[in-house]
Amino acid sequence: MESLYLLIPIAAIFVFIAVGIFTWAVKKDQFEDLDREGQRILFEEDDNDKA
């Protein structure tokens, strides 16, 4: 069980990295549109737009 002394701090580091990435994403406008992104996958993307 002593491994907890190592594992919990490592887990903590990962959490802080994740929070850091999240904060960065919010600041980079990734969370600007909360209504649309969830549905984007449902639409077909045409790559050959320009006819």
Partner: peptide, 28 residues
Amino acid sequence: TCAACAWLIENRLKQLDGVDSIHINLST
């Protein structure tokens, strides 16, 4: 009114020559 509207406008405008990029934010 919904995400399909944003999709519709984006895809129509992308078809036009001279439009480089179009991105629609539905929330705002």
